[in-house]
Design a protein around this nucleic acid. Structure first.
Lengths: 234, 234
DNA sequence: AATTTATAGATTATCGTTAATCGTTAATCA
DNA sequence: TGATTAACGATTAACGATAATCTATAAATT
């Protein structure tokens, strides 16, 4: 049996809607706190309310929106406290995943990681905040997958996806250079290459926090407020 | 404004259906691996397919069922490996939650924990596997809540709920005595009362694993298989 | 004037029906 | 006969329309 020649498979409409909305949130088309109206989106996407609804519940599942019964669904607005919680917890789980991945790492897996790094480099070169965030996420997902721990993968995914959406928006607002993303991921690959447990732990632990430091040190309580301030500055 | 005298609020049908199905899974009315047909359940519960669907996605969200596009939704069937993963991860997160909870514990919170223990004792006294599992879960949820870490709460909830459903079924099959549940939770309260960080860590770490040991040491690969074996034994 | 009650508009929740999909079995044909 | 295609039954996916709910504003009541 050969693989599919080209993907004819149409995924469910709700799935397509889900991906569309996810992208929109990542690239900042919708803003944290902004309401997503079912009927309106249905009209926009030319599908039924039902399918939009299902897409929204999927987004809720990965933590990108919050659904309030009889009120509506809103793009998740992480508070400073929640971001701190997620960063800390992510650090703990990433370290565990890293250690487990190290036990199972193969030359082929290392090569795959380098491919993912290539994607990050490519995204940085075109200066696309959105694509960097996506490539970054895919890089880490690969590590989680290599760890062979399905539960860990799911937890990390849920914990991290909203953080990445957040980073993506934050970086753009701050007009932050994307170059750093390349080196910090190269370090991770080198740590895996070294085969030293302690090195992997250290590098991964240090990996995520820097990006948020400016925000966490600021007075700003959430992204919504940051956006307001930034827009006023102009 | 006073609180509602008695709950007149009708929650959404999907929510009611969700709770009904959750209970059914916990008390073993549906078996791991068993398919849940939307139209059939709709008829059974006298609501529309749409509402059942939404309830099923909620169940998927807490990990109690698996939905396969165009195929159906099935009660989650945890493999031995997944159970091990969840137990390990739960241990790690429970320890973190315990330590954070200890920092914030108050006499009132301790009293609340004792109330929850009371519920466990009551459930044990009537020998209800289902209610013990529920009370047990509520006990731990309170600790997570005391920790003040919303992210941690959500992760633990998602990780643990399917485990509790699993325990409940497992205990009944093995006709295991429920008495142990009382003492092991009393220990946790005592640890919090002592105020000693190390004691809390130790007690919580040790807390969850014993229940599963028989199963994990057995040759049985999943609950479905265990059920088959147990039924044959009769 | 302050508080309660009506009302209207917008939005989600639910329904019943129809369409698409999957797996299985029957039919066809080389 | 063996393999491919067609048809069927069961089930999920999607739709359009209606009902229930919430919010904000206006009217009424004290």
């Amino acid at each position: 049996m050969r693989g599919k020649l080209f993907s004819i498979k149409n995924s469910p409409l709700s799935e397509q809607a889900y991906k569309t909305l996810l992208d929109a949130i990542f690239n900042g088309s919708f803003f944290p706190g902004e309401p997503l109206r079912e009927l309106h989106l249905a009209q926009e996407l030319e599908i039924s309310q039902t399918s939009v609804r299902e897409a929204l519940t999927k987004l809720e599942h990965v933590g990108l929106v919050v659904r309030v019964p009889n009120k509506g669904t809103f793009v998740t607005e992480l508070s400073k406290k929640e971001i701190e919680e997620r960063i800390t917890l992510r650090g703990t789980l990433e370290e565990i995943a890293g250690v487990e991945a190290l036990k199972r790492i193969t030359p082929a897996a290392l090569a795959d990681l380098n491919l993912k790094l290539g994607n990050i480099i490519r995204a940085v070169s075109i200066n696309s905040y959105f694509e960097v965030a996506q490539a970054d996420l895919e890089f880490h997902r690969l590590i989680w997958k290599i760890s062979g721990n399905k539960t860990l993968y799911e937890m990390l995914d849920q914990l991290t996806v909203p953080l990445f959406a957040f980073i993506s928006i934050l970086r753009r607002f701050e007009k932050e250079s994307l170059d750093g993303a390349i080196e910090s991921h190269r370090e991770i690959i080198e740590a895996f290459g070294s085969g030293v447990d302690g090195r992997v732990r250290e590098v991964i632990r240090q990996h995520s926090s820097p990006i948020y430091i400016n925000f966490l040190n600021s007075e700003t309580e959430n992204l919504q407020a940051l956006a307001r301030k930034t827009l006023l500055r102009k």
